[in-house]
Design a protein around this nucleic acid. Structure first.
Length: 204
DNA sequence: CCACGGATTGGCT
DNA sequence: GCCAATCCGTGGA
């Protein structure tokens, strides 16, 4: 049971539950990265669940390797992986130790540190309205804007560098449930969730 | 040792 | 809408 109030950091117990539950409840929460006194933050608007035991699309499905070992930690840390030779993607590890479950953060609506995100993503301080919508509407884009990379792999989400704040719960009627993006296996599972009509989702 | 392909993105048609 | 870029983890020989 989670008793965290809005504005408070989500606790271990929030993450140590089923990936599907955590995924849906992460919508509307505030993702925060702090380095020094710079703060980057935004509302989580799109996620996907991956469950190692039954999900052929999960990195953890074929067992533990050097690359995916963080996914087998107990819930409450960040799993960052490198893909397509270009991009990092970040996941929230969920459930119990050795389960291999996680929630991929696919899109964020920027709140604080937008200047810094623009620099990280586009290398400039001022961007067009179109580029603003394009700042963090994809898993690779989030990691670019927030400057998240392999050195953040395994970081504790109850610590002070990267964490998630509670916020008002998104009602079920505002959540769209659909198939996941970019996978070739277990494509029938409806494990992608996003906030209806939010302009910052990666796609419908 | 080598070949393969990916939880993506951005540019071009 | 289609496709190349880019590179490293993974798995088979």
């Amino acid at each position: 049971m989670n008793h965290t109030k809005p504005g408070q950091k989500l606790s271990k117990s929030f993450y140590q539950r089923s990936a599907l539950k955590v995924a849906a409840e992460l919508l509307g929460k505030i993702f925060v990265k702090r380095d020094g006194r710079k703060v980057l933050s935004g509302i989580i608007v799109e996620v996907e669940a991956y469950i190692g035991s039954i999900d052929q699309a999960a990195h953890s499905f074929r067992g533990k390797t050097k690359r995916n070992q963080v996914m087998f930690n107990k819930g409450g840390c960040l799993y960052v992986y490198f893909t397509y030779g270009n991009h990092f993607c970040c996941n929230v590890v969920t459930g119990k130790e050795e389960e291999g479950d996680a929630v991929l953060i696919r899109a964020i609506q920027p709140i604080d540190g937008i200047d810094r995100m623009m620099l990280n993503r586009f290398g400039k301080k001022s961007i067009s309205p179109k580029e603003k919508l394009n700042l963090t509407n994809g898993p690779g884009k989030i990691c670019s804007a927030f400057d998240i990379n392999s050195k953040h792999n395994g970081i504790d989400l109850t610590g002070n560098e990267i964490f998630i704040l509670n916020n008002k719960k998104i009602s079920e009627s505002e959540i769209v449930t659909t198939t996941r993006i970019g996978i070739k296996k277990s494509t029938e599972l409806l494990w992608r969730f996003y906030i209806k009509d939010n302009p910052f989702i990666s796609r419908k």
